[in-house]
Design a protein around this nucleic acid. Structure first.
Lengths: 123, 123
DNA sequence: TGACAATATGCAGAGAATGGAATATACTGA
DNA sequence: TCAGTATATTCCATTCTCTGCATATTGTCA
């Protein structure tokens, strides 16, 4: 028999499991600023599309994020902003509270070819 | 090269990983009330000693708990009480904040033979 | 010192996660 | 309808994790 307690713990564990991955945390940090399309994540995190998509699928399965299609693009956004309390708390436990609560990884303009076809820095 | 950001994410991920297990969460919930010896955890959680000990080792490796030996017993206690903010936040995300923030699993008297050799309820 | 109790550790099989590659799907514009 | 772009899914080998069992370690008491 599964008590309410058990269920709570299992749910919490499942949530932690979904968060137990640096790339997924990085994705959530990017989404902190609002919804983003996959191409942004790809560009910002410097990972392959298929890989990003896989990690997004994990977060989606854990109901941490949802997607919204708009034409050719998929936009992802966090379902419960409370999730950021979790991320910040985790950093606080580790770094003693002064661990930068996510310096904006995001650049002024996304360097992906769609959004910023302006300048490709090649250094 | 590993940026500060990367390191923060890796640390947070490691913390989440340690928490991503229902039994380990249950252990932390028991420790919420203060330090406990292994025999208590064994009795309260209804798991075998070796199993509990292994999960404790995981939590210890993640520097979430520390132990203190006192004669024949080892007492475990949580290093950063902030960890409970994490657990509560996780439950809040899941259950919508009304998920009982850990109803005391602990019984009035620990049923382990050492502490309460008084009455073994047998229903 | 020897028997015993409490706890920790090592090992192994089963199962799950990771990450890379290929491929499928969905939408747009010509 | 066809080509092209954006994203998702599937497959797979490798690696990690879980968990039960046996055993080692450490402390206590007679």
């Amino acid at each position: 028999m599964l008590t309410t307690q058990d269920r709570t713990e299992a749910q919490a564990a499942a949530l932690f499991k979904a968060l137990a991955h640096p790339v997924r945390i990085a994705i959530l940090d990017v989404l902190r600023h609002g919804e983003e399309c996959v191409c942004h994540l790809e560009a910002i995190l410097g990972k392959r599309q298929a890989y990003i998509s896989q990690q997004l699928a994990v977060l989606r399965a854990a109901q941490i994020i949802t997607d919204r299609r708009d034409g050719m693009n998929s936009f992802y956004l966090v379902v419960h902003p409370e999730i950021y309390a979790l991320l910040d708390a985790a950093r606080a436990v580790r770094g003693g509270a002064n661990a930068a609560p996510t310096a904006p990884i995001r650049r002024e303009s996304c360097p992906c070819p769609k959004c910023a076809p302006v300048a490709v820095v090649a250094d």
